[in-house]
Design a protein around this nucleic acid. Sequence first.
DNA 1: TTGCGTGCAAAGGTTTTGCATGGCA
DNA 2: TGCCATGCAAAACCTTTGCACGCAA
Lengths: 136, 136
Amino acid sequence: MSQYLTRQRKALLEYLHAHPDESFSARQIADALEAQDVSLSAVYRNLAALETQGMVCRAQKDGGHEVFYRFTQADACRQHLHLSCSQCGKTFHMDVPATDSLVRQVAQSADFQVDRSNTVLYGVCGACRNERETTE
Amino acid sequence: MSQYLTRQRKALLEYLHAHPDESFSARQIADALEAQDVSLSAVYRNLAALETQGMVCRAQKDGGHEVFYRFTQADACRQHLHLSCSQCGKTFHMDVPATDSLVRQVAQSADFQVDRSNTVLYGVCGACRNERETTE
DNA sequence: TTGCGTGCAAAGGTTTTGCATGGCA
DNA sequence: TGCCATGCAAAACCTTTGCACGCAA
């Protein structure tokens, strides 16, 4: 799979590389790539291929029904957990030692083996929290 | 809101109470309640109302695009994290002390405030893990 | 009786798919 | 040149909504 590097696939990959910490819906990506004439179908098909290869993750944002895609470096992302800020929408990587310790802790206290690559912790990041505190 | 206890709402609530650890799509619930003549619209509308009241949570399963609903006791679920087994589909409640300690740990190591009621850890539960080990 | 909740069908969105065409290697 | 990937449009889904009717209180 994914044998040809087409103009569209290249554009998509470049876009994802340029926004490594954000999540996008397929439509958002297609809109962003409109100037480069990438069809919505192509976006969907390429995202599906990239997902199979482990280069993008899917997740659903807070309340909505839409699916969001997020770029991940295939190997790196298998090792640590992701933290998604529901305020600014950015995704952060929890460092590996902290992830390890957390996974171990859950295994011990709840007899549950966490799948790092599939789990996203939702909440508020430090920056947004500070901002909120100064505003209020 | 939710002033009348209609036949349909009652059937839905009974169904959810009977399956407290599982997640269902709206269609699955509607199918299960077909014998009691509950329309899909009614299921959606009641689930939406229950979600507002904090009695059900939405979440997306592993790879899919469909939204799943899970029954939660309003108050209890605000305090602890949920663990969803991707093998058997059941949802478990992490006990409050363990949840507290985990949330504190993430706050310290990653400067990130986890929203307990919105976060679901995916992985494999103890029972499924044992089963898998004996089979292999 | 009042007005909320329901059923039905239509509308609105997102995602998938078929088929002919175009483009990468 | 082969064959994969694309575009377009249609189809398939899931979810929401409008409207008239029915039912709980």
